[in-house]
Design a protein around this nucleic acid. Sequence first.
DNA 1: TAAAATTAAATTGTGCACAACTTAAATATA
DNA 2: TATATTTAAGTTGTGCACAATTTAATTTTA
Lengths: 146, 146
Amino acid sequence: MNPLHLSSQLCFPFYAISKEIIKRYRPLLAPLNLTYPQYLVMLVLWEKDFVTLKSIGERLQLDSGTLTPLVNKLISTGYIEKTRNPEDERQLVIKLTESGQQLQQQAKEIPAKITEVLGLDEEEYARYKEMLDELACKLEVKGGKC
Amino acid sequence: MNPLHLSSQLCFPFYAISKEIIKRYRPLLAPLNLTYPQYLVMLVLWEKDFVTLKSIGERLQLDSGTLTPLVNKLISTGYIEKTRNPEDERQLVIKLTESGQQLQQQAKEIPAKITEVLGLDEEEYARYKEMLDELACKLEVKGGKC
DNA sequence: TAAAATTAAATTGTGCACAACTTAAATATA
DNA sequence: TATATTTAAGTTGTGCACAATTTAATTTTA
């Protein structure tokens, strides 16, 4: 077992599976005019509206260099708006538009469709999910359960 | 348990952990003048030299739009060379330079350093690896063990 | 064997991802 | 309370990732 072989790496299946899962999201998200990272931002906002760019970034592990253009895209698509916090003008406060709120109804079908296209049953899904949450804790990846 | 919550998604920990792992590779690969995707290409070539661009792409699940500029970067760094297969001029054959072969010696330290910075013991590493390989099979992600 | 279909790379364009830096606002401290 | 420090976004530049298209070589088939 050569540790320099691709098949010995833990990193590679993560990289490959992550890309594969995002690929399977693409046709489901395209009708909503969303990319996968944009969908993540919408998930955060559907959980809690009126949040700062900074807090979205902490949740998704993305910096302003990624989020600023991404948020501008979502604004031009019409799903969100940005204002400044009057008590701290540095902070950008993101809120859903009417259209962004309504989109949640369409998006509700996506989780079920995804488990379908991944071809995993409920038990498998839960087992993988648990293992990943555990590893996320170990690696201290924020936005998770610990 | 709202299925539209970020914390319910299988995709997100994959996305976040994958980015986190790549982030931890970065300082280890920087002294070798490699990015993570470039390191993956080198891993493939250290396993088997003189392979086509197409076969590298199949192994890593990357298309020519990604690989062509990446390979050109590795050429300008001096680790690989490209020639055409004289029996089929469409095919690009990639081979390691002297420098690219020597790099393997330095790279041999990386797997051990990575397990160290990930903070996983051998048992944990093996357990996660097994589960990922299993999922890769289920999702029919090529380049894996099935 | 000439035309059609297929294949391998390359090209073009969009959208992340992130490092490094800049700008402006708020807070801390001398 | 001026000055220094910190903080939140924004900007710039590099490097993937991938869809869609183009180009050129090879193979198929009419």
